[in-house]
Design a protein around this nucleic acid. Structure first.
Lengths: 100, 100
DNA sequence: TGGCAATTTGGTAAAATGAGCAACTAGTGA
DNA sequence: TCACTAGTTGCTCATTTTACCAAATTGCCA
C-alpha cells in the first residue's frame, strides 16, 4: 500500500469507524425515522447527555448526520440514508456466522 | 435502550467495527477479487506479518472471512461479499461531506 | 436582567486497540 | 531428521476511545 492507497482506505475507514459503536449505530437507525433532538436521543439511550452529544459529534464530523439549532435544542438528521444499507449486510454477516 | 436492544446493537457494531480499519478494509477489498494467502496480503500492505495475521483474525472472528490451510499457507476468502456494499455508501458519504 | 433548560467542551481515568518483536507450531523438502 | 517457510500467539508499549463530571455557552422567558 503506497501513501496514496493508504490515504484512500484511511478516509474510508474513518467513516466506517464512526458507525462502529452500539450507541451511534442505534442513533443512526433512529435518525433514519426522522430528525431527533439531543434530549430525546439521550432519553432513549440512557447515557449522560454529554456522552450522547459527543457521539453525535463523531457522526457529524464524518458527514453522516447534520445538526440544526432551533431555539434551545439541536436537531440532528441523517444526511446519508444509504448507511442504512449497512444494516442489511450486517444482518447477513450475522446469519452467515451462525451457520458456520 | 434496554438490555435486549443494547445487545442487538452491540452485535451489529462488532461487525462494523471489524471493518473500521484501513488495513482490514483494504484486505476485504482485495479478497473480493479472490482468495489470497497471508504472505501475499502482507506483501501488499507492507506491515509485519503478525500484524496482518491479527487483522485477518479480527475479520474471521466476526464471520466476514474464512480461512483454509493448504500446505504451508493459509488462504483467506470473503464469506460475505455484501460488505462491498459498504464501499459505495462510504464513497457517497465522502461526497456528501465535501459538498457541505 | 436573572435564572433555567439544552448542549457542548474540557479534563480525567479506565479500557480497548494496534504494531512489532520474539517465541512457538505446522508443513515441505533435502 | 534438519533446516526453512508460513502463520499464529504472547508480550509490551504507545495511542485511541469512551464515559462521566464539571464548567462554559446559548436561547428563552419571567
Amino acid at each position: 500500500m503506497d501513501a496514496k492507497i493508504r490515504t484512500r482506505y484511511a478516509g474510508r475507514a474513518k467513516i466506517v469507524k464512526a458507525m462502529s459503536h452500539p450507541t451511534r449505530l442505534f442513533m443512526v437507525d433512529e435518525l433514519a425515522r426522522g430528525e431527533r433532538c439531543v434530549q430525546v436521543l439521550t432519553g432513549m439511550v440512557g447515557d449522560d447527555i454529554s456522552t450522547i452529544s459527543k457521539h453525535l459529534a463523531v457522526l457529524k464530523n464524518v458527514g453522516i448526520v447534520a445538526d440544526e439549532k432551533r431555539g434551545a435544542q439541536v436537531y440532528y438528521t441523517l444526511r446519508c440514508p444509504c448507511v442504512m444499507d449497512f444494516f442489511s449486510c450486517v444482518e447477513s454477516v450475522l446469519k452467515t456466522k451462525s451457520r458456520r
